[in-house]
C-alpha cells in the first residue's frame, strides 16, 4: 500500500507542513495537477491561498480521508449524510474559510457541501430583512427598485394571485 501510495508533503499558507497519502491529496484536483507537474512526490507542495491555514487544512483533510474511506467501504448514504451534516456545523468563519479552501483546491463535493450550508442559512430567513440582518448587508435599493424587483415575481408576494 505504502509503495503505491507515497506520502505527499503539503505546506500550508501559515508555513506548517502536513504529510498525507497521495491517494488523499489527489482528491484535490489542484494538488493532483501540481504533483503531476513536478512529477516528484517528494517535492513539498505549497498551498498559496490565504484560506489554506493549518487549522482549515486539517479539517479539509479530515473530510477527504473520511470520504475516501466511505468510497472504499461503500458506506451507506445515511452514514455519509450524518458525517456531512456534522461537518457543516461550524462557526461562520470556518464555513467561510473552508469554502475558499475547497474552491482553491478544487474539491467539488466539499465546496457544494459548505455552500449548501450557507444556502440553508439563507433559507432560514423568512424575509429579505432577515437575510440582511443575518449577513449584515446594507440595503442599496431605492423603494422604486424594490417595487420593480417585486413586480418581477408578483405571485410570490401575493398569495391570492394563484
Amino acid at each position: 500500500m505504502s509503495e503505491a501510495d507515497p506520502e505527499i508533503t503539503l505546506e500550508t499558507y501559515d508555513k506548517h507542513q502536513i504529510k498525507i497519502p497521495k491517494s488523499i491529496a489527489t482528491r484535490s484536483a489542484i494538488i493532483n495537477m501540481m504533483i503531476e507537474d513536478t512529477g516528484d512526490v517528494n517535492e513539498v507542495v505549497p498551498l498559496a491561498d490565504k484560506s489554506c491555514t493549518l487549522n482549515i487544512m486539517n479539517r479539509v483533510i479530515e473530510y477527504l480521508k473520511k470520504h475516501a474511506e466511505f468510497d472504499n467501504t461503500g458506506a451507506d448514504d445515511e452514514v455519509i449524510n450524518e458525517f456531512d451534516k456534522e461537518f457543516q456545523e461550524q462557526s461562520d468563519e470556518i464555513i467561510f474559510q473552508t469554502i475558499l479552501a475547497a474552491n482553491f483546491l478544487d474539491i467539488k463535493n466539499l465546496l457544494e457541501l459548505m455552500c449548501k450550508k450557507v444556502a440553508d442559512e439563507i433559507k432560514k430567513c423568512k424575509t429579505p430583512d432577515d437575510i440582511r440582518d443575518r449577513f449584515n448587508i446594507r440595503k442599496d435599493y431605492t423603494p422604486e427598485e424594490v417595487e420593480e424587483v417585486k413586480r418581477a415575481h408578483p405571485w410570490i408576494y401575493d398569495k391570492n394571485a394563484k
Binding site: C115, K116, A119, I122, K123, C125, T127, P128, I131, R132, F135, I137, R138, K139, D140, Y141, E145, V146, V149, K150, A152, H153, I156
Partner: peptide
C-alpha cells in the same frame, strides 16, 4: 444554486 424560486426571489431583494 440550491435555493427554490421563492427563496431565490427573496434573496434577490436583499441588495443589487
Amino acid at each position: 444554486l440550491t435555493l427554490s424560486p421563492r427563496e431565490a426571489s427573496r434573496a434577490s431583494q436583499v441588495c443589487r
